[in-house]
Design a protein around this nucleic acid. Structure first.
Lengths: 350, 350
DNA sequence: TTTAGCACTCACCACCGGAGAGTGCTAACA
DNA sequence: TGTTAGCACTCTCCGGTGGTGAGTGCTAAA
């Protein structure tokens, strides 16, 4: 499954592609511009450096490689990587060791949150890049049970359990105090009303009820509904995202200036932009690769993302992947991301 | 409250101390070795550089300052900082702005976890250092209510609420399945048994019961107790710790080498060592300052910690502080840490 | 079409030398 | 005796210089 064969009338010859492949692989390995002499030896085609130079010149005209300065070798451009990834890449299956360590660390018995954490730690550990796992809004998230507990005078603890066995809780101050039995009554009422319904739906209905609070409901009920409203909102807006192994990125020369690293880390801390990019991968089938500027964020210009969604029972429940320099080892990384997604999905399905 | 006055027969003269103070303040401001000429101007004592040199030479003999190389100025040693902090420091009260931004951001209505997060973000934002907030094991943590919910065949969700309105939950697989009513019965039983008791106590009693599971308990009860045991352990061992603004540390020249920063970030990610240091501050009264190697961790040699515990109703509930280079602005930072602790405590007390 | 040869370019490195900042020491001074 | 001026010395930092090596583009021959 090396590549789709390209039409022979393609603007770039079969041989040139062969060189491009060798160049990208070499550059990924060494991290330094590749010269004609090196490349001539690498391909095994027994051609002189001069010939290689001519080919490289063509590739440069096509915008697939550039040389950083007159007398340096060539480096792939984003278009070059793209071509490489799309049709030149040979996958390299993850090593036994890697698979083993993935398998053993995904303990089925832990809860979703720590699985997510483990996944991103593992990803970063194995790939030596930054691992990221996102847990997006569920489209389908069901109200399962609510519990209202008095905590102290005028403070109520609301606990909401949703379909995935996730627990959301919030402490809320109230102006007037509830008696324990009032709270119990209220939670019974809410449970009767909403159990089994979609969270989004529940939120809407609660809002409605609060608006036209009809005479039939007593005051306490209305206030209980307000409490429920709050915790339901918390449950809806939650989308978590873990990033692990950020420090791995410091190893890569091309990112290793203080300013650059600081920018990157700041992006990671805010998470917003990352979430935004990952959001775009939810729908996609299979592994997605964003190279350099393709992510659409100037600050990730010299980085690539490799992501894939993971599914439980054919429903997408999240996205995971890695972030690293454009010069990452796609052949190795892509399969690892793929496998991790599968194993995480399996662990989540139980 | 500039300083405790030192005994006049102290090995280091009043004037020398004055110089030391000026030197430390200058070095903290500029970050560069301070020379005799500069210092002579700084103190306003109208002495020649030569005289200053003599004094500096004395201070060097006492191990309070060093010069990085022959023809550089002097830099405070750890002992120098220590002396400065103990008896030369003039506190600088936080600015109106800082206090205001602290006050408004501590919204009483949010739960403990997000308060903690806010606190560390604020600390780092205001001081331009890394902010850290720890939520240690409570000595007094009370079992309030447990809830066991069937999630699917052979999976049970256990939710435990403890005294502080904190919610712990865990999903557990069971070999045989429970009926909903069995679970309800079990949770009622557990609640009756344990409500109001200390968590540590509960854990012990559960262990006991499991060991000598007496005939009087039916099989299901025993298995329910095992579930409870798990979530109780989770509740006991929890000690969280947030670190924010790590990237601020990259601004400081003395830490700004890739290797150093990477080490630091790795330490922060592990959290273990940090927690360990913070643990030592729990008992202490008031603001604690660890300068350089005083923290006991070689990897934090060129860093200082400023921490204090925060209390609710005279019980220590946590520790917070900042981490930065030894050359941090103690005069400003210490009061800020102090105030933040008070405000956080107030917000937690409600 | 491929190759050898050649002139040229550029980054990298080691080296040199001067400028500037700061020191320690000594001797003179109040 | 404490303070100061003077002086030689040390060390960092910076800019310039020159050589080396890697690599290129171009041209002309095979």
């Amino acid at each position: 499954m090396t590549s789709e064969t390209r039409p022979t009338d393609s603007p770039v010859s079969e041989r040139a592609l062969h060189f491009l492949k060798a160049l990208v692989e070499r550059y990924i390995r060494e991290g330094q511009p590749v010269g004609s002499r090196t490349l001539a030896k690498d391909t095994g085609l027994d051609l002189s450096p001069a010939t290689v130079r001519n080919v490289m010149s063509d590739l440069e005209d096509l915008g697939l490689v550039v040389s950083p300065h007159t007398s340096a070798g060539r480096v792939p451009t984003v278009a070059g990587y793209r071509l490489f990834v799309n049709s030149l890449l040979t996958w390299r299956a993850p090593s036994e060791d890697d698979i083993a360590s993935l398998r053993t660390r995904f303990d089925v018995r832990t809860d979703a949150k720590s699985l997510i954490e483990t996944a991103s730690t593992l990803l970063s550990g194995i790939t030596h890049l930054a691992g990221v796992v996102m847990l997006p809004r569920h489209e389908r998230n069901v109200f399962r049970q609510i519990e209202l507990l008095p905590l102290s005078e005028k403070r109520v603890l609301a606990i909401l359990v949703t379909s995935e066995g996730e627990v959301h809780n919030r402490i809320m101050g109230t102006e007037r105090s509830f008696t324990p039995s009032q709270l119990e009554q209220a939670s019974n009422y809410l449970n009767q009303m909403f159990t089994g319904q979609d969270i989004g739906e529940v939120r809407k209905r609660l809002l409605d009820e609060l608006k036209h609070a009809h005479a039939s409901m007593d005051q306490q009920m209305i206030r209980a509904a307000a409490l429920a409203q709050e915790v339901v909102e918390a449950a809806e807006s939650r989308d978590d995202c873990f990033i692990a192994g950020q420090t791995n990125l410091m190893e890569f020369g091309e990112l290793a200036s203080m300013d650059r690293i600081r920018q990157l880390f700041d992006i990671f801390n805010q998470k917003r932009e990352i979430l935004h990019i990952l959001d775009r991968c939810i729908a996609a089938e299979g592994v997605q690769i964003f190279i350099g500027e393709e992510s659409g964020y100037a600050l990730l210009d010299d980085c690539s993302l490799v992501t894939t969604s993971y599914r439980v029972d054919d429903r997408v429940v999240g996205v995971l992947g890695v972030i690293g320099p454009t010069r990452m080892d796609y052949q190795r990384v892509v399969p690892i991301v793929d496998v991790t997604a599968r194993l995480l999905a399996a662990a989540l399905r139980q």
